[in-house]
Design a protein around this nucleic acid. Structure first.
Length: 471
RNA sequence: GCUCCCAUCGUCUAGUGGCCCAGGACGCUGGCCUCUCACGCCGGUAACAGGGGUUCGAAUCCCCUUGGGAGCGCCA
């Protein structure tokens, strides 16, 4: 019966992505949970690059991913750039370390060379599936005689290294979100730990590194749950410490299928480019498949303080953009005005006069979710190119020429005092409510909805307003 | 095919045998903001997958069915 849990070692979580593409929401959620847990325990959040597949592990993705994590505020305190006692933190640089462990395993007969070709294995897998049997490795090379192994090596036949999984045993461990797990080794075939090109395979280096880097809690996707016994077996064979494991449910798209670009999952870079705020993403993700008592927007620290593995749902969670939008709106509402201004971007900065910044941001804040929205209002308020929507046009036509003539007079008299202007109009033209405000809004802004006119009119200015009321 | 995980409003979820003819949030929707829309505030809408047990009592425990997800790779 197997063992588990570490004690007394400093709390450490990790995020171990493969830099083969851009980070998306599913990845980040895993990173976030690990980060939150580490921060809560005042432990260490480690970043490790799983780039053993030399062909696909691009330096540029590694950098992009580091940049994404930093942007989100998920800074790691051990790993690339941050340093630490257990480096290097890119698996591509850990070859010599893995070599030792391969040798240890081989010398004790716990791993053996396998000469089966990929083609051969593919066929075996297909055959097994067709015969309704599990597509597991047959064990063909398991009992090769030493002489034969020598001979085949002498002939330079390529070989992988397989970890020997003893049959008839059980592996048990307590998953921190799913509870006690029991697996039979009969359901696990001998598996490849070193590819024929000499590079280490995922199951191997991932487990070894968690142990060597003294990770105490592995929070990862549920897709790794049934693979965990293999890693435990390996670690036990090597006498390495086992981390705790917590397998979180995966995020699925609206169709219930795993999250993909098709189902609307965007990369962090895309989200960032369109103006999503880190706090919005973090608040949304921390509540996707996890629950907090409070419904208000929380800082990263608050998210960490109140995070808990026991508050995690176990069913796959559905990605829902409307909820992300809600947190985005909340985040915009709570952004300090200086940050709000910066966030609006260059295009807005060039349109809005320096001295109008405060007024402008205060006026539009509640009505925008993205810099593009801010830009739209900046254009409406500070430029002469006014695009009048169809609905707005109709509202203006309905109000008629005289309405606007009066409006112009009121404007001359009261200036940009919207309240006074509208009041005058109400009295002299005997219109009120919708009939009063909609045509004004339509002419002034080209739209039927938006921020308060009383706040925008002073920014638009009397001159521009006059022109817009001249129809 | 085998093994494993999972199943409460449209969505994210609370709920660990009685406090639940099920609570919150998003969405949708009604009202209010002594005159528009939006913002905001206050209400409303809507769910325990199905069937068997166990129990005085089940959303909560057990079994089966159904449905979803994962793994079984020289991918990570």
């Amino acid at each position: 019966m197997a063992s588990f849990t570490m004690t007394a070692r400093p709390f450490k979580t990790r995020f171990a992505p493969s830099p083969t593409g851009l980070l998306h929401l599913g990845n980040i959620r895993t990173a976030l949970f690990n980060f939150l847990l580490a921060r809560q325990a005042q432990g260490t959040f480690l970043l490790r690059l799983e780039d053993t597949d030399a062909l696909r592990g691009h330096e540029k993705y590694a950098r992009a991913l580091e940049q994404d994590l930093r942007w989100l505020g998920l800074a790691w305190n051990e790993g690339p750039e941050a340093g630490g006692q257990h480096g290097p933190y890119a698996q591509s640089e850990r070859g010599s370390i893995y070599k030792e462990y391969f040798a240890a395993l081989e010398s004790r007969g716990l791993a053996y060379p396998c000469f089966c070709s990929e083609h051969e294995l593919a066929i075996a897998r297909k055959t097994a599936l067709a015969a309704h049997r599990p597509p597991r490795y047959s064990g063909k090379c398991r009992a090769l005689l030493p002489q034969e192994v020598q001979a085949r090596f002498a002939r330079a036949e390529p070989a992988t290294l397989r970890f020997r999984v003893e049959e008839g045993k059980t592996v048990e461990f307590e998953d921190k979100v799913r509870g006690w797990q029991v697996f039979s080794t009969d359901d696990i075939g001998d598996y490849v730990i070193r590819r024929s090109d000499g590079t280490p395979a995922f199951f191997f280096c991932n487990a070894i590194d968690d142990a060597l880097m003294e990770v105490t809690l592995v929070v990862r996707g549920e897709d790794h749950l049934t693979n965990t016994p293999r890693q435990i077996l390996l670690l036990q064979a090597l006498g390495l410490p086992l981390p705790d494991y917590a397998h979180i449910a995966l995020v699925v798209g609206a169709d219930g299928a795993p999250l993909s670009k098709r189902s609307g999952s965007k990369s962090v870079q895309e989200l960032r480019a369109s103006g999503f705020l880190p706090l919005a993403i973090n608040n949304y993700l921390a509540r996707l498949g996890h629950t907090y008592d409070a419904n208000a927007l929380m800082s990263l620290n608050a998210l960490a303080e109140n995070f808990g593995l026991s508050r995690l749902g176990r069913a796959p969670a559905r990605y829902d953009e409307t909820q992300l939008m809600h947190w985005q709106h909340e985040a915009v509402l709570h952004l300090p005005s200086e940050s709000l201004w910066t966030w609006m971007g260059e295009a807005v900065h060039t349109l809005v006069p320096m001295e109008k910044r405060e007024e402008f941001t205060a006026a539009v804040r509640a009505n925008i979710s993205f810099p593009a929205d801010a830009l739209r209002w900046a254009q409406i308020v500070f430029t002469d190119q006014l695009v009048v929507s169809h609905a707005a046009r109709e509202a203006m036509t309905t109000a008629g020429q005289e309405f606007f003539a009066t409006a112009r007079q009121a404007l001359e008299k009261h200036g940009a005092d919207f309240k006074a202007v509208s009041e005058t109009l109400r009295q002299t033209r005997a219109v009120s409510g919708k009939a009063l405000f909609q045509p004004l809004r339509a002419a002034l802004m080209g739209e039927l909805d938006g921020p308060e006119m009383a706040k925008l009119l002073p920014l638009i200015g009397v001159e521009r307003a006059r022109k817009r009321l001249s129809i």
